[in-house]
Design a protein around this nucleic acid. Sequence first.
DNA 1: AAATTAACCAACCGCCAAAAA
DNA 2: CTTTTTGGCGGTTGGTTAATT
Length: 271
Amino acid sequence: MGRAPCCDKGSVKKGPWSPEEDRKLKDYIHTHGTGGNWIALPTKAGLKRCGKSCRLRWLNYLRPNIKHGDFSEEEDRVICALFAAIGSRWSIIAAQLPGRTDNDVKNYWNTKLKKKQLHLLIAAAAQSTHGQQYSSRPPAPPFTVEHHHHTSSTSAASLGQLLMFGVGGGDHHQQQQYMSSSSSVDISNNTSAAAAAAAAAGLQESFMFGGLQFQQQEEDTNSLLSPAAAASGNDIMTYEHHEMISPSSFFFYGDGAGGAAATQEGTRFLY
DNA sequence: AAATTAACCAACCGCCAAAAA
DNA sequence: CTTTTTGGCGGTTGGTTAATT
């Protein structure tokens, strides 16, 4: 037996919101707030809607300072970096993008960015078959990345794994094997995710990742850290105006007892 | 011009965790 | 401590619009 529905499905309106409904909801929240109870709100506001539906409409559309329209290149990079680091944790990713909602980010990823990234990966794969960049190390890691509380596999998650593993190394069977190995890295922590994203973007010389400290390799003479970024803290948003490396090119590899991650441009992190 | 396909996105659904009873 | 309720989240669906045949 599932739990009882949050509202009477029969007497509740569904489908697109009318301007009139929008106005009622807006007006009510402006004068009374949400009252900390979305379930009771529609009745009080004179709406024949489920509380959840009201909440969603408010958060995704009516709330002030919601940004609609095209995503910037910077936003693309933040989304890709965080997706590579933490997977489809849309609320966390959206929290790094002022004015964007999780639904917006999710839709944008699923409809546009995912394809864009795939094209980049294919291009990178074509390039790596010629040779050079990581030929001395296996490109796929023998550890898994666990997404903390949602473990369902989706096409988005699969792409995340692809982003994690890099391209041009390991066939499908090999990747399956890696995914089923025992050790794991927990990257559920928001802060480490942001730090990982910053590192993935080549803007931070070290970061914690699943309890592992990644350090930028000393031999790297091509650091992309700007003085401003270097001086700032862990907040990913402090980096938003700096040039970032394409996060899709952030790879992990290693033997379980220590290993490395690298950006495609060659900045390496050791743990 | 009409039919078909692809892309987009708002909204719904069900699950989970935290809070309240 | 257990059960119920609620808020929040991510996955998915379905309607609409745009592009292509």
